[in-house]
Amino acid sequence: MLISVVLAPADPLPDVDPLTAEVRTDRRACRLSPGDAAALELALRLADGLREGGAAPRLLAVAAGPPGHDAALREAAALGAGVLRVDRPPERPEDAEYEAHTAEALAGALTRGGDRPDLVLCGAGPADAPGALPAFLAHRLGFAQALGLLSLAPSGAGPGGGPAGLTGVRRLDRGRREVLGVPLPAVCSVEGTGAEPRRAPLAAALAAAGAPVPVVQAPAARPRVRAVSVGPARPRTRPVPPPQGDAHRRILALTGALERTERPTVLGPLGAAEAADALLAFLRRHDHLPEAEG
């Protein structure tokens, strides 16, 4: 059985220019999202379980991106996976079909040399993409798909000691859980809360340190849908602390109720120059302008 994990390291805190909405990522700070980490961990657990059952599962971790992704792949290699990187430039084009292209490139890498994965695991909710990649992958590979899973377990006995299918658990609203029977081959995406990722042993991390990661080139993109325009990215929302003081006072402060305000002053019909002088004098009187010079 061949289990493939698609990893998508991303910068969790990119710099978004508030004026131009230009997004700048730090290539070194790119790391696995919780979903990716859980996908890798679930793949390792599945492989462990199959190995105990006497099967010989293979594990392949694939990432599509620049050489900066190699660090994440080396950690996967140290955990016992084979690794492969599909070379893509670090800049994300503002392309409506970016994830479709990525799926195309990944599918090519996953099925190199006539190989065919039995299970492709992805992280749900990537940090820097809409999250349609697993669906595109399933479509391209002609696999079943089950998305947003919390856990995944083998079920039944299939050929070669592998399972016939998988049982996945998915969260629904109002606290319900849905148990899915997933036939193989399948593409599954995993939520970040599913499994705490393990760490690679030191000896394996040493062996993987500095080792070259095999690279394949992505096929040229053939866009079918063209992006006509793209809205600006927005800075991420940020939790702010609850306001101080009691609600009554805050409402008073916000509305200005009970505050003594100055009544409007009517200075009578004035010429433009006198009106400007009167306004400036008012602003000076209230410290909104520095005192008159000279």
Binding site: P67, G82, V83, R112, A203, A211, V215
Partner: peptide, 25 residues
Amino acid sequence: DGPPPPPVDLGAAAPSERVDGAVAP
């Protein structure tokens, strides 16, 4: 203190054909 780290082939589970553009150190 334990055996030396076993050599790992990072491309182990990848298909055995030559991968083009493999990074040479």
